[in-house]
Computed example of a mutant assay.
Amino acid sequence: MDPRTKSRLLWGVVGLLSFLVLIQAYELATSDLVDWGVKLGVAVVVGIAAALVTGQSQKRLVEDEADSRSTDATENESP
């Protein structure tokens, strides 16, 4: 599996599980119950969003890093 794809999927899982932890804390703090279908539906949406944001962020970071490397290489050249 491509390392970037693996990273995106893992960050999606982290987002999904983080949402479930937060909703559980909400239920414990307020004694309000949230339906399981709502929990799982929103958790999946959060996981997908986290994976997509990770993918876009990785692209930008890689492009920025490549731009800075090319700038650094030209700065080191002597006239």
Rank of each mutant, 00 (worst) to 15 (best):
A66H: 02
N76G: 12
T5A: 10
L33R: 15
L28P: 04
F19D: 00
P79D: 10
A29W: 12
M1H: 04
L17G: 02
E75S: 05
G55C: 09
D32R: 12
L33E: 15
E27G: 11
L16N: 05
G41W: 00
L16D: 02
V62L: 12
R4E: 03
E75N: 15
K39A: 01
L10M: 13
Y26S: 08
L52V: 15
V14G: 02
S57V: 08
G41M: 00
Q56M: 08
V46M: 01
K39D: 00
K6M: 13
T30W: 08
V46L: 02
L9T: 11
L40A: 13
T74A: 08
V53I: 15
D32V: 13
D67R: 13
G37P: 01
L33M: 09
T5G: 10
E75A: 15
A43C: 07
G41R: 02
A51F: 05
S7G: 05
K6G: 08
K59E: 07
G15E: 01
A51T: 08
I48M: 04
S31A: 11
S31Q: 13
N76A: 05
F19S: 00
G15Y: 00
R60K: 14
P79M: 06
G37Q: 06
A51W: 06
P79C: 01
V38T: 13
V42T: 09
S31F: 12
L17W: 02
Q24D: 10
N76L: 13
W36I: 09
G41A: 01
D2C: 00
L9H: 06
S68T: 13
G55W: 02
L28M: 15
R8D: 14
L10C: 03
E75F: 15
T71C: 00
N76C: 04
L40P: 03
V21A: 12
L16A: 10
A25K: 06
E65I: 11
M1Q: 05
I23E: 11
A51I: 12
I23A: 07
K39G: 00
A66C: 00
T74I: 09
S68A: 12
E77R: 10
W11N: 15
P3F: 03
T74L: 14
L28W: 15
Y26N: 03
R69N: 09
V44G: 05
V13P: 10
D2K: 00
T54F: 01
L40C: 01
L22S: 12
W11F: 09
S31Y: 14
M1A: 12
T54P: 01
L16S: 03
P79T: 04
A51V: 09
L61H: 05
S57F: 07
P79W: 10
R60P: 01
Y26T: 02
V45D: 04
